[in-house]
Design a protein around this nucleic acid. Structure first.
Length: 616
RNA sequence: CGGGGCGUAGCGCAGCCUGGUAGCGCACCUGCUUUGGGAGCAGGGUGUCGGAGGUUCGAAUCCUCUCGCCCCGACCA
């Protein structure tokens, strides 16, 4: 391709709305252009990279026995009604009507459609297993699209769905896909980690996210420094942190604030002090002494959840504990009704007695007007709350807290559970290692679905005994555009993108320094033809521009191999070769160019293929 | 959805407070010089100042409404 003919608008400055490096560079390198919030045009350079990722994914999926199909983007509401998701799926599902006022949606994922496709045709266990995939544009009406292709509304995704007669076979395929994903991301040249992810109702270890490690990632992952345990922090288990001091191993499993004697409960004035920092600072103590009381609203009713002041509550864990469909931090009004105090002063002491007209044990009765009956309110606590002796909680009264609060003496907890978000320095739940928190970009997800959709949509088959059974399903997604963006996050410098060979839009960037110099152009044209004939993608910058402009554009675009043809080297029958990921250039004889370039590419391709790892 | 901000040339921005000929840098077009790391000189403005309404002799500027976008938060198979 000749640069002068290519639709490749490079930019010296990035638009002000680009925040992260991959977004800025994709725009500056002429790969994408925004058309609306979270919706982009892919220009030739961008599409070439997308196609590279797609092809790697396609090759590995085919090799793994999956079959490519294409499903519609516009999906009739009936299928979504059948699965029950039409009403459950939030506003992310873009619903549209056709001219007959019939409901459709833009597919954000295709479980319904693929289940419909398979249930119509498959009757017998003999026709299973099946793994069907597509690489296709999806639409999710994200609340806040950002970061370019990283979190768009319209995006390209590879989604695969497998169907099985037995649990064992579904699990075999899960491992097959896990291994395939490892190969795919290795071939893409990415540094990644497969981590345990939320499994929701399915449970078990059959959900892994593939995370590309990058500081700009939107997800946090906890990874053990000793064993192979790695999990999304949403999911990461925690274990008792011994003496109550974070990160210090200890044999003490309970009552960690140790030998401290229980002191009498006391109410203190804490005007305007709401946050853990404010309260602990005001009372001259540490956040570890605080029992943070969070009031949640859910389909299972209002609940209170306690975590130690220095930890964060993990909503996913609470949701799972309650087996709730939805869960939200209670609004101000609910907090007032439940605690009879503005938010920031909730506490477990006397919380269940609200509205009963009873005072708090050991303290005079107080006005409870506006309170409601809380007898059925459940109080849950994270395990580590047990370590608190003489703790501090809100007093369910504006501008007041209790100090010297002790569990069982002053209030009771309905149930303890692992409810907090894993933190850096936590003990590993599997070994005696320590967890470290990394940021990651989720580029892939493998998930065992079970029979959720096959049961809801009656996708059954006959087994050996002639019994009708729901098919057991798995689903496996890869964000194509996100993978390309993640690669840029990992591979760039201050000048621009540094493409790994497998994703590079071109193999070679040819720069004739002076296009008006005939000897230069003769050599350039001949190298260009030779490399093209060898089957390589070559971009030749034939523009009549100054060298600086061409070099800067080359660095920005990030093609791995740069060949510069200039008059100095030509005198020695040579051209200059520079790798984008190297600091220095070298001279090679013109006759050796093809051979040398092919060598480099062959070597780069080989590096990508590493043996896939097994499930930890 | 809550809070904050922005919309002026292709991109980045000034002008707005205090109403009076629409500007700067880069990019772009023409010519000459230059040609190995974003050149120099000369000439050229390519604009519905997001849109609609209002105030005014006069609105990019003041007021009202509206659309779009961005940031923080909430939310997120």
């Amino acid at each position: 391709m000749k640069f002068s003919r290519m639709f490749l608008p490079t930019l010296k400055e990035a638009p002000s709305d680009a925040e992260i490096v991959s977004h800025m560079l994709m725009i500056r390198a002429g790969m994408i252009r925004k058309i609306a919030a979270g919706i982009y045009n892919y220009l030739p350079m961008g599409l070439k990279v997308i196609k590279k990722v797609e092809n790697i994914v396609r090759e590995e999926m085919n090799k793994a026995g999956a079959q490519e199909v294409s499903m519609p983007i516009v999906v009739p509401s009936e299928l979504w009604q059948e699965s029950g998701r039409w009403d459950i799926y939030g506003k992310e599902l873009l619903r549209i009507k056709d001219r007959h006022q019939r409901n459709f949606c833009l597919g954000p994922t295709h479980e319904e459609v693929v289940t419909e496709m398979v249930r119509k045709e498959v009757r017998s266990y003999k026709e299973l297993p099946l793994n069907i995939y597509q690489i296709q544009t999806k639409f999710r009406d994200e609340i806040r699209p950002r970061f370019g292709l990283m979190r768009g509304r319209e995006f390209i995704m590879k989604d695969a769905y497998s169907f099985h007669a037995t649990e064992e076979d579904a699990e075999r395929e899960y491992q097959n896909m896990y291994d395939t994903y490892c190969r795919i991301f290795e071939r893409c040249g990415l540094k990644f980690r497969a981590v345990e992810a939320e499994t929701g109702a399915i449970g078990g270890r059959f959900s892994h996210e593939f995370m590309v490690l990058a500081d700009t990632g939107e997800d946090s992952i906890a990874s053990c420094n000793k064993c192979s345990y790695a999990a999304n922090v949403e999911r990461a288990e925690t274990k008792m942190q011994g003496s109550g001091v974070r990160g210090l191993p200890s044999n003490v499993s309970i009552g960690g604030q140790g030998s401290e004697k229980e002191r009498p409960l006391e109410k203190v004035s804490t005007p305007g002090m709401k946050t853990v920092e404010e309260v602990s600072g005001f009372l001259k103590t540490t956040p570890q002494k605080l029992m943070k009381t969070l009031i949640y609203n859910s389909d299972k009713g209002v609940v209170a959840a306690l975590v130690r002041g220095d930890y964060e509550l993990n909503e996913s864990k609470l949701k799972r504990l309650l087996d709730a469909q939805w869960l939200n931090l209670a609004d101000e009004e609910t907090v007032r009704k439940t605690t009879n105090a503005p938010s920031g002063f909730a506490g477990p002491v006397g919380l269940k007695d609200r509205g009963q007209g009873a005072g708090v044990r050991g303290l005079p009765p107080q006005s409870l007007s506006g309170g409601q009956n809380n007898t059925n309110l459940k109080i849950f606590a994270d395990y580590n709350v047990q370590t608190i002796v003489n703790g501090i909680t809100g007093a369910n009264e504006a501008d007041a807290h209790f100090i010297n609060v002790n569990i069982d003496r002053d209030f009771t907890i309905d149930s303890y559970a692992d409810l907090r978000i894993a933190a850096d320095g936590d003990l590993c739940p599997r070994c005696d290692g320590v967890l470290k928190i990394f940021r990651g970009i989720e580029v892939g997800h493998v998930f065992k679905l079970g029979t959720k959709y096959s049961e809801a949509m009656d996708a059954t088959f006959l087994n050996e005994k002639g019994q009708g059974k729901p098919m057991i399903m798995g689903c496996y997604g890869i964000g194509i555009g996100r993978t390309a963006a993640a690669s840029i996050e990992q591979n760039h410098d201050e000048k621009g993108i540094i493409w790994p060979m497998p994703l590079a839009p071109f193999h070679v960037h040819l720069i004739p320094v002076n296009v008006k110099d005939k000897p230069t152009m003769d050599v350039a044209e001949s190298i260009y033809k030779n490399l093209m004939n060898a089957g390589l993608d070559v971009l030749m910058d034939d523009r009549d521009e100054r060298a600086g402009i061409k070099f800067n554009d080359a660095d920005l675009i990030g093609i791995p191999i740069r060949l510069t043809i200039g008059s100095k080297a030509l005198k020695e029958n040579s051209v200059e070769l520079k790798m984008r990921n190297a600091a220095d250039a070298s001279l090679i004889k013109i006759d050796d160019v093809s051979k040398k370039v092919l060598e480099i590419i062959e070597q780069a391709d080989r590096v990508g293929v590493i043996t896939a790892t097994r499930l930890p």
